[in-house]
Write a protein that binds this DNA or RNA. Structure first.
Lengths: 213, 213
DNA sequence: CCCCCTATTTATAACTC
DNA sequence: TGAGTTATAAATAGGGG
């Protein structure tokens, strides 16, 4: 039982690596829990490995779903039908953006992490339902990228509301899978790169500008 | 230098708790790094404490920004101006929803975690700029909640594009702060609660439904 | 605040079943 | 393959500078 001093390098032996991962994951989760308990801080950890289909997450979803429940009241005002055009446009915009994104996914590791990150965020914060899939998370980056410029641009007094009762989770899932299934066109076109600053929110007026405390 | 066995409970002594946090955070970061290196897995950790204004994140943003850079090509197609109305509506919708959400924020710990989680996700995945603020993240949960029903509803062939060059990060920040500053109306109205299933995506057609592999 | 020191606890590499 | 065992490496509590 002579124990070697750990060499900080990728463990090439498959079974050793897996065993190492299992042990260290457990230890890390415990450390996470201890830190949170001892110091009363909020923390979160996500680990994604080929050994498990679902990512390992700390803490359990329970804590986060308390927060989630506070967001559930959003759809309470609705019943408006005249937004179909806007929604159609935006939906299509999302589709295009997601397709664009898909083409530039090259690094599988990074891609998986993308999915995992957003899958977890999504599961915790947005949807709490049976139909969450890790695949679906590819859509979220695009949403988070597109929404700031599509949505948060101006501010008028006109309030319009939505009918959210029409939603169909089944078709949503199909759509997401469609986007995911033909993957890796692998064109890394540098001309498509645009600096990040343009992608931030904009609000032209209607908001008191003297509040940047 | 007698060392007590750690009792797994909140450390009431302020300085001890902080010292403990500092040490354990460092250890946890190292463990995270080791696990990632040794086992070649993707992982992420976020710790939010009152001792630091910015949350502690592993890994550094660098790794994630490699992924982020792949999203930066999104604005490459643009120059369309006839979307002002849609954007105005949606912007206002967001404002309303954020206000609604703000009223139901009661638990400060959870609220802070909300901000932290989204702040980190946002910093890593969406914006890579100087003007990111943890305050701004209150807007993101609302976006992620609203977008699925506002946006991803139908699918037509009509593609419209946006002019993203007009954006003004300064005003965005002011708006976000405006939303944040008058906080805690504290009405926990149960009638505003709506089940989560209605909030999922919907795509009515245009997507091959035979692909739910 | 930060790093350092050291006794001690804790995590875990290598091994066995 | 996974769950125990044990000796050793690593982390860290308490204290000092």
């Amino acid at each position: 039982m002579i124990r070697k001093k750990v060499k900080l390098a990728y463990i090439t032996n498959d079974s050793s690596r897996k065993a190492n991962y299992k042990k260290r994951k457990k230890g890390l989760m415990r450390k996470m829990s201890e830190l949170s308990t001892l110091c009363g801080i909020s923390a979160c950890a996500i680990m994604y490995s080929p050994y498990e289909s679902q990512p390992e997450v700390w803490p359990s979803r329970i804590g986060f779903q308390q927060v989630l429940s506070k967001f559930k009241m959003i759809p309470e005002m609705e019943e408006r039908k005249n937004l179909v055009n806007q929604e159609s446009f935006l939906s299509q915009r999302i589709v295009k953006v997601v397709e664009q994104l898909r083409k530039d996914y090259k690094d599988k590791r990074e891609k998986e992490m993308t999915q995992v990150m957003f899958n977890n965020i999504y599961d915790k914060w947005v949807v709490h339902g049976e139909s969450s899939s890790s695949l679906s998370m590819v859509a979220l980056p695009s949403m988070m990228m597109v929404m700031p410029k599509v949505i948060l641009r101006t501010g008028t007094e006109d309030i319009m509301q939505l009918d959210v009762k029409k939603m169909d989770p089944m078709k949503r899932q199909q759509w997401i899978m469609e986007l995911m299934n033909n993957n890796n066109n692998n064109n890394n076109n540098p001309q498509t790169h645009v600096g990040g600053e343009e992608m931030m929110f904009q609000f032209d007026d209607n908001i008191n500008p003297n509040n940047g405390h």
